[in-house]
Design a protein around this nucleic acid. Structure first.
Lengths: 140, 140
DNA sequence: ACTTGCTCCTCTAGCGACTAGAGGATGCAG
DNA sequence: CTGCATCCTCTAGTCGCTAGAGGAGCAAGT
């Protein structure tokens, strides 16, 4: 499992080629050795690291948080309070985002449902956007 | 309700001063007349437009969609199918985002709950991120 | 008249996390 | 040996702002 070219590691990790190069550039992925023809050659360690990154990105972790997580992963003898903290923070963030999206969903549903499809002058979508008091939720 | 300076219209519309200037720059808000001392002077029409924009942004509409919505608002004699369509699209998007955030929430909760807080070597947070098969949801 | 302190002006550069494209080198199959 | 896929580096663009420099205008107090 060694000497994997960038295209193949891209396919296997589901991370696009330019993104992999970008990760190298910002120091998230170590620069791999090169072939005689100057091509990057990756190993299975890199594949694991890339999959880790991709998975964490999918879950909405920011690059900086991932950087911390990767450092933790590299020295496994430390207490994991920090990793746990990062995940907890993310969880709180996700919950907040769900809440506001649910409110938004209600509002959009009311907009779409309430419109009689005649002309813009009477359109509820436009009306609601123009006049905040027509909102279901007053918070925002 | 005329000759409102940028700071006041910012306070009233809840849109930050640089953002208002940015909206002018990208042609979302018309350039207002200026005072002798070259200061922007807004009217209540601008206030309504800015509130509309802000509200739509809060609801997650992109600038381009808002541009369309504003054009529609400016000519109220057209059928509103387009505005309705934009709102419907947004609704579908929001629903999709809620779904994926709910999945994410489950996953994060399992991570956080499952960790025994000893050291990184045994941390479930790191483990789950490193190994996709430990996920609750296989889709991503 | 002068100073203080606030608001405003323009301009440029930066953010995050990529993505797109130019222009060229390498590698491999037929 | 000819195509074509893959790779390289480099720069610039995306979106929706945000930050900061450096300066001008304005209103109130002394």
């Amino acid at each position: 499992m060694t000497d994997i070219p960038i295209g193949e590691i891209s396919r296997r990790s589901q991370v696009k080629v330019p993104t992999i190069r970008y990760y190298e550039q910002i120091g998230l992925l170590p620069a791999p050795p090169r072939s005689e023809g100057n091509r990057r050659l990756y190993g299975s360690r890199d594949l694991r690291r890339l999959s880790f990154i991709r998975h964490a990105r999918d879950l909405g972790f920011e690059i900086d948080a991932i950087r911390t997580l990767l450092t933790l992963q590299d020295n496994p003898n430390q207490p994991c309070a920090e990793a746990d903290g990062i995940a907890r923070e993310k969880l709180a963030e996700v919950n907040a985002r769900i809440d506001s999206l649910m409110a938004l969903k209600d509002e959009l549903e009311a907009m779409v449902g309430g419109c009689e499809h005649r002309c813009v002058g009477e359109c509820r979508v436009i009306e609601v956007l123009a006049d905040h008091h027509k909102c279901l939720h007053a918070e925002h």
